[in-house]
Design a protein around this nucleic acid. Structure first.
Lengths: 343, 343
DNA sequence: GTGAAAGCGCTAACAG
DNA sequence: CTGTTAGCGCTTTCAC
């Protein structure tokens, strides 16, 4: 598999009988180079199919124009939307993306971090796995002054910026809405209470209960991995409750949908028997019947904001620790699944 | 933003009073190096926080261990599944991914190709945009013997391998199934007939009609961008038909769902009045009521196969033009939306 | 087993 | 406005 010889600035310099320095300058459109020379160089470069060698340049410049992205999973609507947002900003600014998924495992996340580190990404965008217990594997980045920004699933840390929504408040409003509709016995389906997003949503849920003098019951907290299947399992659990709960607040739409489908199959009517509120505003929330009340989560915007912020750090527009938490707007979207008197 | 000085093999060599050559060899685990020396080197490297410089290495080795991926859109279930598959294989084999989206525009696709080329990806995985008219922007890769593999949306070309499913056959079976259920007046909703996948699905649809002596009607071909919204629009068109068609075969589940929702809202019953078959087996097909009959599309597997194949090319396991088309198995999944006598 | 040295392609300091 | 030159950090050939 021999490759055609690459054209270098030496080739161009040779043919034009000028120095590589001039060629290098011309190619960067350095105004100091004579217009005519520049023109000749550009033309020849084009003709020869010259392409600049990133490695040589990076080797000199000590930067890669690459941003690393570590996500728990690629295949969710939310995540692909975030990545589309990141990609949009990054490409505009001339950055490439290296993307890996941790598959919700702390182990793989550490590995990914190492890969990113060794690939010398200029900056890192991370959404933590379910499993992650500490942030030690990101210390290597801070030590080298490589900015790390967490989005969605992050953790408070002096060295890292977080981009997120107000999960507590959103969950509070979601739960309050259910209570306002007259549902009091409310189950909460979520993931392990390790990640901020789930902890905060749980807090919001509890706060709403408390404010309405509804005692929190341990057995109303159902923990799973928030997949459709986990939703189906949660439905089993719910069906065994006696009396049945009146409402369910799920930390993610997909899981809510899985749960609703199973309950419906078991003859439960939504929202008459049990009301539902989800989280994320995944398109599926408008497909399920009844349509799912949910919290709108600005994924695309979150991706853009995180990337923009990272790039600003990189450009030195502001110092690495200048911002620490960016909160995006989110809001409850009320649909039929939670309304006592739905049409 | 000064970064801590990077540790190089020179530093290690200095401290250990050996040559950089030995350090370099040891770090690659070259068996020729004395075990003890190697151990010392590894320990010191660890302690100093040494990380190898990819650029220096790439500059020497003329390879990047990077695979480029160009997709029309990141945010569909299908695409994120494919990418998860690619990522899985690529990471296992020590390759990084650079991902860009063309946003269904030929222009952006060309730009992406250029970026990839300049980033010197070792190989390229592409799913073409709706818009793309020619493959000229991939010629630069063949000229340099850089393998390019198309997945899902490709085009026959002597230089490039395609990984796909048998779209014609799948569409044929889907349509035949509708006909078998007694639906004869069948609308086909799809995208511009530019990409293989849509052309082939259309062919399969037509073939099934022909074999059953059902004349194809021009007005039964509805072209859009296959989004949920396009589905809603298609529903408008359908509702104006008199008489109404009996069945609809949609080239993608999302669009089918959009269409079904609108029709249902207009009082049409599915499948009693109009039957539906989709394509892709997106999870949403099991959420919509009635559940959508669809063609199972092995996205994850497609990603794995495409990546595996590319990497085999790169490893020289087989020559660049040895395979030209890889067809993955796909099959019709029959659900309630298309069954005359559904429960 | 180990070392010396050349060179991958580019940039930038310095000199003119 | 242009050229010379010294590296960036690594791999690899050739010697020993």
């Amino acid at each position: 598999m021999t490759r055609e010889k690459e054209v270098t600035i030496y080739d161009i310099a040779d043919k034009l009988n000028i120095s590589i320095a001039t060629v290098s300058r011309a190619l960067k459109d350095d105004p100091v180079v004579n217009k005519k020379t520049k023109k000749k160089i550009f033309e020849l470069a084009e003709q020869l199919g010259y392409r600049s060698n990133h490695f040589a340049r990076n080797l000199r410049n000590q930067r890669t124009d690459t941003i690393g992205v570590i996500v728990p999973r690629l295949n969710s609507y939310f995540m692909s939307t975030v990545i589309a947002g990141i990609e949009n900003v990054a490409n505009d600014e001339g950055y490439n993306l290296i993307i890996t998924q941790s598959s919700e495992s702390a182990e793989k996340e550490k590995l990914s971090a190492k890969t990113m580190f060794n690939s010398r990404v200029d900056g890192l965008l991370v959404s933590l796995s379910y499993d992650t217990n500490d942030l030690l594997h990101f210390d290597q980045f801070s030590r080298k002054n490589i900015p790390v920004i967490f989005f969605d699933r992050g953790e408070e840390h002096i060295n890292f910026t977080n981009v997120l929504i107000d999960n507590r408040r959103s969950a509070y409003e979601a739960t309050k809405h259910l209570i306002g509709q007259g549902y009091k016995q409310i189950v909460h389906i979520t993931a392990q209470l390790k990640r901020n997003v789930y902890v905060d949503r749980f807090k919001g849920y509890k706060q709403a209960l408390e404010e309405n003098s509804i005692p929190f019951k341990d057995e109303f907290l159902i923990i799973g991995n928030l997949s459709i299947e986990a939703g189906a399992q949660a439905a089993e659990t719910i069906l065994k409750m006696d009396p049945l709960p009146e409402g369910v607040f799920v930390a993610n739409d997909n899981c809510a949908v899985g749960c609703m489908l199973s309950l419906k199959q078991a003859g439960i009517r939504i929202p008459e028997n049990i009301a539902f509120v989800g989280f994320n505003n995944d398109p599926v929330s408008k497909v399920i019947e009844p349509n799912l009340t949910t919290v709108n989560y600005p994924g695309y915007e979150m991706g853009e904001v995180a990337a923009r912020n990272l790039i600003n750090h990189l450009n030195g527009t502001y110092p690495i620790h200048s911002t620490n938490t960016i909160v995006l707007r989110s809001e409850l979207i009320i649909r039929a699944s939670s309304q006592r008197f739905s049409k």
